[in-house]
Computed example of a mutant assay.
Amino acid sequence: MKYLIILEPTETGFSAYSPDLDGCVAAGADRAETVALMQEAIAFHLEGLAGEGLPIPAPQSEPVLVEV
């Protein structure tokens, strides 16, 4: 499955979250590290849900850029 993640620059690097997975976040020193950590966080999050017998949320978010 592919989940949308949102990357945000911070004072010390980047942070990321997935709108489809509440509480699934990561932070790293740079963009590449943050994406890699987020991949691991999503896998861990989904394993935890499955281990608890909870449903795995289907990816639903999609990016849309609007011009203002």
Score class of each variant (00 low, 15 high):
58 A>C: 08
26 A>P: 03
61 S>H: 14
16 A>R: 01
61 S>V: 11
53 G>K: 00
55 P>K: 00
50 A>I: 11
14 F>V: 12
44 F>L: 08
60 Q>Y: 11
32 A>Q: 14
32 A>T: 13
37 L>W: 08
22 D>T: 11
54 L>W: 01
52 E>L: 11
20 D>H: 05
15 S>T: 05
62 E>W: 14
15 S>P: 01
26 A>Y: 03
23 G>D: 02
36 A>T: 11
58 A>T: 12
31 R>G: 08
12 T>W: 14
54 L>C: 09
25 V>W: 05
46 L>E: 02
29 A>E: 15
36 A>R: 08
40 E>Q: 13
59 P>F: 04
13 G>P: 13
41 A>R: 08
17 Y>N: 09
55 P>S: 00
19 P>W: 05
24 C>D: 03
44 F>Q: 06
53 G>D: 00
25 V>C: 07
11 E>G: 03
20 D>S: 07
12 T>D: 15
59 P>M: 09
43 A>P: 07
37 L>D: 10
19 P>Y: 08
29 A>K: 15
24 C>V: 03
49 L>F: 13
32 A>F: 13
54 L>G: 05
38 M>K: 07
55 P>E: 01
47 E>M: 07
56 I>F: 07
40 E>K: 11
56 I>Q: 03
35 V>P: 02
38 M>A: 06
42 I>C: 06
35 V>F: 06
9 P>A: 10
27 A>W: 09
53 G>A: 01
10 T>E: 14
35 V>C: 08
43 A>S: 10
59 P>I: 02
24 C>M: 04
10 T>G: 14
56 I>A: 05
20 D>V: 04
14 F>E: 08
21 L>M: 02
48 G>S: 13
38 M>V: 03
34 T>F: 14
25 V>R: 06
32 A>K: 14
41 A>H: 03
26 A>V: 04
15 S>K: 06
46 L>F: 09
33 E>D: 14
43 A>W: 05
53 G>R: 01
50 A>Q: 04
38 M>W: 06
55 P>H: 02
12 T>A: 15
61 S>I: 11
41 A>P: 03
39 Q>G: 08
29 A>C: 10
47 E>W: 11
51 G>K: 05
60 Q>F: 12
19 P>N: 10
60 Q>C: 13
13 G>Q: 13
47 E>D: 15
33 E>P: 02
54 L>N: 04
57 P>A: 04
46 L>N: 00
17 Y>R: 11
37 L>E: 13
58 A>E: 15
9 P>G: 05
19 P>E: 06
18 S>T: 05
58 A>V: 09
15 S>F: 07
56 I>N: 01
54 L>H: 05
56 I>K: 04
13 G>S: 11
23 G>K: 00
14 F>W: 15
41 A>I: 10
59 P>Q: 10
42 I>H: 01
36 A>G: 09
11 E>C: 03
16 A>N: 02
51 G>P: 04
44 F>G: 06
28 G>K: 02
36 A>L: 06
50 A>M: 08
15 S>M: 13
40 E>C: 07
43 A>C: 08
54 L>Q: 12
28 G>W: 01
48 G>P: 09
56 I>V: 14
54 L>E: 10
58 A>F: 08
53 G>W: 00
31 R>F: 14
10 T>R: 15
33 E>S: 12
45 H>W: 07
58 A>N: 12
44 F>I: 07
18 S>H: 00
21 L>W: 00
44 F>M: 09
26 A>F: 04
26 A>E: 06
25 V>S: 03
25 V>K: 03
46 L>Q: 02
29 A>H: 15
27 A>T: 13
